[in-house]
């Protein structure tokens, strides 16, 4: 039982370091949610903020020697799961309506007399991007390439 006493002596620095890490994660998540235009990345940033909160809660839990903080983090996890489910549905809906995952695609909700905000000087992106597997939407039968299918030598 060497470890607990050792750690108990350093309880306050451990709390401070934990809280600090939580604060950094929270602030970075905040910057992400404020700047990134992609709806998915915005939600990732929100999850980042939740992680920061979780770290802080666990740090306090450790300091006080109480399970309350950890229990709260379990609730945070559950709520994050719910939020992710509903939010992704909304993102999908938004995507089917506008065809974009851009938060600025909804700027027609602005004040009527204001001009449209148009992006200027969009930097070119020359890096080669790998193509990711494509998923078809549920309810649609995927278009199959008959010629390619017949020539496949292995399945």
């Amino acid at each position: 039982m060497m470890l607990p006493t050792l750690l108990a002596a350093a309880a306050l620095p451990l709390l401070q370091n934990g809280l600090f890490v939580g604060a950094i994660l929270f602030s970075l998540g905040l910057v992400g949610i404020l700047t990134r235009r992609n709806l998915i990345v915005m939600f990732l940033s929100a999850e980042l903020m939740l992680q920061g909160i979780s770290v802080s809660l666990v740090a306090w839990s450790r300091y006080h020697g109480d399970f309350g903080g950890q229990v709260l983090v379990i609730f945070v996890l559950s709520v994050a799961a719910c939020e992710a489910a509903v939010a992704l549905v909304f993102v999908l809906q938004a995507f089917t309506r506008t065809g974009r995952l851009d938060a600025a695609a909804w700027q027609s909700l602005r004040e009527a007399s204001l001009p449209r905000s148009v992006d200027h000087e969009i930097p070119a992106f020359n890096d080669a991007m790998p193509s990711f597997p494509r998923l078809t939407q549920a309810g649609h039968s995927p278009a199959t390439d008959e010629a390619a299918a017949s020539q496949r030598d292995h399945v």
Partner: peptide
Amino acid sequence: VRRLQSGMVQRYALAGV
């Protein structure tokens, strides 16, 4: 004030922060 109502949700969030 309504010039702030730009339709860009992130600007609203920034103002809140």
